[in-house]
Computed example of a mutant assay.
Amino acid sequence: MTQRSGATEHPIPPAVQETYGPADLGSTSLFGGGFINFGHWQGIDLDRPLTEADRIGSQQALYRHVLAALAPTDGLRAVEVGCGLGVGAAAALGEHGFAQVTGMDIHPQQLARAGQANADLLARHPERLRFVRGAAEEMPFGDGEFDRLYSVEAAQHFRDLGAFARETARVLRPGGRAVVASFFVPGAEPDDADPDSADPNAADPAGAGRLAELLDTFASGLDVAHTVPLLVASLERAGLTDVRVTSIGAHVWPGWDRWLSRTWEPGSWPRNFLRAFREGGLDYFTVTAERP
């Protein structure tokens, strides 16, 4: 069995360090409820003034959408890659019958907040919930340790999809399943793209420059313009099978933009997520894969 013991030393990208370090994004009205995602807004009336309950509900709905794709889950072991404040991991444990849920994050301050936010649950069920530090590209777990792996709106921060895919295949047991939900460039990768490249700039995806023009998170390096074909190729090259891609952008971007309109004016960069979607340069996907 392979055990990655040095994963906690994996470097944190500077923009990730800054964004998730000093401030607790999960405590802001922009996100709310401890979740940090754009939300799945299906079933929420966007033509009326939105409430904080709507916003929190949209974020819970995104987790439920992902966790439903992992079914069956009763009695199984799961790991969340990029768990943030751990609210989603707690929901997975409480609502989906997992025997154990491990939340993993690269950022020590986020993990400290996760411990505080879930202190009661950790005290009551120390054998069922844990939070550990590790990188998506180098996970501190043994081979075949989990039945299910999921990641909610974190993959846009990963620097090496090839390494993430290999680690996903390694830590899943045979018959295990992975679900990744995040935003990606929908277009095809250039012919010379290498899914195993550790350099996100080795092959510049079509439209990456445009995203940097529209969105500060891409310009600053917080988000990486990975293409969804690159993720699929990475998972398949790692030995995962039955890789399936579903666009859920129609349930994400209009609601996210409607929520942003409470604070940001039209034409401001956060409102450009919807613009990038409408231009065809960015979409939100769920990607599922099986470990044979």
Score class of each variant (00 low, 15 high):
73 T>A: 02
39 G>Q: 02
238 A>S: 11
195 P>Y: 06
126 P>A: 05
64 R>N: 14
100 Q>M: 07
30 L>P: 00
184 F>A: 11
258 R>Q: 09
161 L>D: 10
251 H>Q: 15
98 F>I: 02
6 G>S: 14
17 Q>N: 12
34 G>V: 11
131 F>Y: 08
236 E>R: 13
134 G>S: 01
43 G>S: 12
254 P>H: 03
165 A>I: 10
102 T>Y: 09
258 R>T: 05
238 A>Y: 04
80 E>M: 04
87 V>W: 06
38 F>E: 04
204 D>L: 12
291 R>N: 14
146 F>D: 07
37 N>Y: 02
256 W>F: 15
203 A>V: 05
49 P>N: 12
33 G>L: 10
84 G>C: 01
24 D>K: 05
44 I>D: 10
201 N>Q: 15
290 E>C: 10
229 P>Q: 01
170 R>F: 07
149 L>D: 04
202 A>N: 10
102 T>F: 00
60 Q>K: 09
100 Q>C: 14
190 P>G: 06
165 A>S: 15
170 R>G: 10
216 D>A: 15
179 V>M: 05
67 L>W: 05
265 E>K: 14
221 G>I: 11
45 D>N: 12
56 I>T: 14
155 A>R: 01
284 Y>H: 09
262 R>V: 01
130 R>F: 01
102 T>W: 07
118 N>R: 05
148 R>N: 08
201 N>A: 15
21 G>I: 04
265 E>R: 12
169 A>C: 05
265 E>Y: 00
185 V>T: 13
63 Y>L: 05
246 T>V: 14
174 P>V: 05
5 S>V: 11
99 A>K: 11
149 L>Q: 02
260 L>C: 11
51 T>L: 06
199 D>W: 14
86 G>I: 00
147 D>F: 07
149 L>G: 01
54 D>S: 00
268 S>G: 07
227 T>H: 07
39 G>M: 10
48 R>T: 11
211 L>E: 12
207 G>W: 10
31 F>R: 00
247 S>F: 03
272 N>Y: 03
172 L>Q: 09
145 E>D: 15
120 D>A: 15
86 G>C: 03
226 H>L: 08
223 D>M: 13
206 A>P: 12
231 L>M: 06
50 L>W: 04
99 A>Q: 13
13 P>Y: 14
153 E>T: 09
8 T>W: 00
198 A>K: 07
129 L>H: 04
164 F>Y: 15
258 R>P: 03
188 A>F: 02
166 R>Q: 13
93 L>C: 04
283 D>C: 10
54 D>C: 09
161 L>M: 10
32 G>A: 12
242 D>I: 01
220 S>I: 05
263 T>S: 07
141 F>K: 02
139 M>I: 12
291 R>E: 10
125 H>F: 12
153 E>W: 00
130 R>S: 13
224 V>Y: 12
217 T>Q: 13
292 P>C: 08
275 R>H: 09
6 G>M: 08
162 G>N: 02
177 R>Q: 15
145 E>L: 07
40 H>R: 08
59 Q>W: 03
235 L>E: 00
242 D>G: 13
201 N>E: 15
59 Q>R: 11
207 G>M: 11
258 R>H: 00
202 A>D: 13
75 G>F: 05
90 A>L: 12
182 S>M: 02
84 G>R: 07
94 G>V: 01
42 Q>C: 03
278 R>H: 09
223 D>A: 15
201 N>S: 15
113 R>C: 06
238 A>R: 11
168 T>F: 02
